[in-house]
Design a protein around this nucleic acid. Structure first.
Length: 269
DNA sequence: CTGAGATCCTGTCTGC
DNA sequence: TGCAGACAGGATCTCA
């Protein structure tokens, strides 16, 4: 489910808990992508939430001297629920309980994770991550320098979290369509001018998707229960055998790195 | 070091 | 309708 826009949308929905006291965290199932450490329950009791931010696809809850890191994996989502409401869903694995409301972590496939760390920048899952796509660190020169030394297809490169964070399978296809670049083009055949188009496309697609509240395909909802409307804007993702919205040819589906990839043979080269 | 492929897990959809 | 198999928005790990 969640790529950068969905995580950003989720962060916006829960940032109303900033400056509130996190009374306690209850973990119902610690067998997530990585085992949830005891500290997540033990060392978070009664802590003030100072800020809630995002780094890559991680949600960061800033406590007094530590940080809760939440990754939603493939099927994870958060939802806000009244503490008076004892309603419980299958695959609710953890609850972050405040005075009147709680944030519930639900994740059917359990590819998500929850950590408590003293310094998220030094956490092994974060320290080696690449640049934020919406920052100035992602620019045509940065991408071109990566392309010059890579033997990957361009789509694999822009999805590599150690190079650029936040771009997942949907937005990779969408960005390359907007840039007019075929996803299976070798990085070695990507020019500086192509990099300029790709960088602009990534930023534009992600910004617009955030504005639309992310992409709801089947089961993404923001923490406040709202749907993401970027699904209506998808130009290629999931549209194989349908007609391209820019020309009249058929959208093709190929597999790159075991992931479904969509493109238009006429609009992209 | 790089890159390809398997792998973790459950739910849903497709085709026979 | 039932059931097997494919597939799903992620990302790490192993191996060549």
């Amino acid at each position: 489910m969640p790529e950068l826009p969905e995580v950003e949308t989720t962060v916006k929905a829960i940032n109303k808990f900033e400056n509130n006291i996190l009374e306690r965290v209850v973990v119902h199932n610690k067998n997530l992508r990585w085992e949830v450490g005891e500290a997540v329950e033990l060392d978070t009791k009664g802590k003030l939430v100072k800020k809630i931010t995002r780094r890559a696809k991680y949600i960061l809850i800033h406590l007094d001297k530590s940080y809760l890191m939440i990754h939603l994996g493939m099927s994870g989502k958060l939802r806000i629920q009244s503490t008076k409401n004892n309603y419980f869903k299958k695959h609710d694995h953890a609850e972050f309980i405040f005075k009147d409301e709680k944030i519930v972590f639900n994740d059917p496939r359990r590819f998500g994770s929850i950590h408590l760390t003293d310094d998220f920048n030094k956490h092994k899952l974060i320290e080696n991550l690449g640049v934020e796509p919406l920052s100035k660190n992602l620019n045509k020169e940065y991408l071109f320098n990566l392309c010059k030394v890579s033997n990957l297809d361009i789509k694999k490169l822009i999805m590599d979290q150690k190079k650029i964070v936040g771009v997942g399978n949907i937005y990779a296809s969408e960005s390359l369509f907007l840039a007019g670049v075929k996803p299976n083009r070798s990085c070695k055949k990507i020019s500086l001018d192509d990099c300029s188009k790709i960088v602009k496309a990534i930023k534009k697609v992600l910004r617009y998707a955030i504005k639309m509240g992310g992409t709801t395909l089947k089961d993404f909802y923001s923490a406040d229960g709202s749907e993401g409307y970027f699904s209506l804007e998808l130009k290629v993702y999931g549209r194989n055998n349908e007609i391209c919205k820019h020309c009249d040819s058929e959208i093709k589906k190929i597999i790159i790195g075991q992931r479904a990839t969509f493109y238009c043979e006429v609009c992209q080269s």
